[in-house]
């Protein structure tokens, strides 16, 4: 069995659990812990541990989906997660105060993993807050995201997520 991994990360409430659930073939394994006070304030009943889903591609190929909040105390896991990694799906909520900064810090935190694989960015909740626009992200972040697919997505909409995964795979250098 060949195992591949796609990591879905981003700030609390950006839509990671929703995305894993929408893509996975199996019922998502919920490993929610009791949220810290801080995250409780941001969103009730959120993931602080990990979401797990799977795509059964063929008899001997499987893609594992890991949703990780990327909080610092989970630093130690990223090494394990990145073995067989195809790339990172970074979800960022447009409704949060500083999504530009969220992108900067997550791209930096996952820098090594992204260097070996690839990354796409999904901007969620643009229906709740339309600004900043995708154009604003490019203006603000410039070269940092120039070659990265940055799409508006609704984590509840599977079509959006599939487009994001397609761009992730296409962004990987072909073998």
């Amino acid at each position: 069995m060949k195992n591949y991994k796609i990591i879905i990360s981003g700030p609390v409430g950006a839509g990671k659990s929703t995305a894993v659930r929408a893509l996975s073939d199996i019922d998502v394994v919920d490993t929610d812990e009791i949220a810290s006070d801080e995250t409780k304030i941001m969103k009730a009943n959120t993931t602080v541990a990990m979401d797990y889903g799977v795509l059964n591609i063929s008899d001997n190929e499987r893609v594992h989906l890991y949703g990780t909040p990327g909080q610092e105390r989970f630093d130690f896991m990223w090494d394990i997660l990145s073995q067989g990694g195809l790339g990172l799906v970074l979800l960022v909520s447009n409704a949060y105060p500083d999504p530009f900064d969220d992108i900067r810090s997550f791209l930096q935190a996952f820098g090594e993993f992204i260097g070996k694989t690839s990354v796409v960015i999904g901007i969620t909740k643009t229906d709740e807050k339309a600004s900043p626009s995708i154009d604003d992200y490019h203006t603000e972040l410039g070269d940092l995201i120039r070659q990265i697919p940055v799409f508006e997505v609704d984590a509840r909409d599977r079509v959006d997520l599939v487009m994001l995964v397609e761009a992730l795979l296409l962004s990987l250098e072909p073998e």
Binding site: L55, I57, V63, V165, L169, L172
Partner: peptide
Amino acid sequence: SGLFSRILEHL
């Protein structure tokens, strides 16, 4: 890449 197209077909 066979794998990538299989993943997309699957999705």
